[in-house]
Simulated scan of single mutants.
Amino acid sequence: MTEEQVRRAYVSRAAEYTARLGSIADMHELDLQRISAWAEPISGPILDAGCGPGQWTDFLHRHGAEISGIDLVPEFVETARLRFPDVSFAKGSLQALEVADGSLQGILAWYSLIHFSPEELPSILAELARVLAPQGRLLVGFFDGKAGESFSHAVTTAYFHSVAEMSGLLRDAGFDVFDVETRQDPGSRPHAALSAIRR
């Protein structure tokens, strides 16, 4: 899917999405633990890449992280700024980040890559690698399943990615994966999270 198609799909349901999934109280306790533990050793700027309505950005900000958020959907950015005025949010594309080479120490890409097919991911991951400093940390959350299999996500078409596939794509983009989590919660699609370091 094109970014414009994804943007339009989320624009039409941004308020509904925020109401259902825009609060940290709605997030899984294991995700809270994983994301806070991932960010804790990072000293320096972190980008929440695809921040949605900003709940994870604010969560890490309140835990002391130097973090900002970007999202493709203007409605999400406006909502995040209203809800969390102490945090910086901007409209932006993962395909062309307005960030200097090697200037970040961390990137959180929590379910923000799910609308990209396996063929589209290499250029996205290369862009994330470009803006991360050597030894910078990346955390990716996604739906675990058969690599490249599409499904009807609540908002618009999304893709499953296997751990092996995502790990290989990250290695090819210049990352070393150092931690893998998979989980199957009742009533939810299988979850995976990969932590990686920029070589």
Rank of each mutant, 00 (worst) to 15 (best):
A164D: 15
E119W: 06
M27N: 03
E98W: 00
D179W: 11
T182E: 11
E149L: 05
P45M: 08
E4F: 13
R8C: 09
R83E: 05
M1S: 10
A39V: 10
L170M: 15
L21P: 00
A49F: 10
W110T: 04
G44D: 07
S68D: 11
F142E: 07
G50I: 01
K91W: 02
E149Y: 00
V131E: 02
S195E: 15
G148M: 00
D144C: 05
E3P: 00
S162R: 03
S36A: 14
V131W: 00
F143A: 03
I67F: 02
L128Y: 06
V131Q: 00
P74L: 14
L121M: 11
A126V: 03
T18C: 10
W38V: 15
L170H: 02
L72Q: 04
V163A: 07
R8F: 02
A80C: 10
H161L: 04
E40Q: 15
H161N: 09
E4L: 13
V73C: 04
I114A: 06
S93P: 06
A173C: 00
Y17N: 06
D26Y: 11
F116W: 02
R81H: 13
E16I: 14
V73I: 12
D185V: 11
L72N: 09
M27R: 13
L21F: 15
S68I: 00
I197R: 09
C51H: 10
E3I: 02
H153Q: 12
P74N: 12
G106P: 14
E181G: 09
L97E: 05
C51R: 07
D26L: 04
G54C: 13
L125F: 11
V177H: 07
G148C: 08
A9W: 14
G106W: 09
F76N: 02
P74M: 08
T157E: 09
S195N: 14
G22H: 03
G174H: 01
R183E: 04
H191K: 03
A96M: 00
S43P: 01
L194F: 13
S123Y: 11
Q95E: 13
F89N: 05
Q105N: 13
L108R: 04
I67H: 04
E149W: 00
E127G: 08
I42E: 07
R130L: 01
V77I: 15
E40W: 14
F89P: 02
D185F: 05
A147G: 11
D86V: 06
L72F: 10
R183A: 04
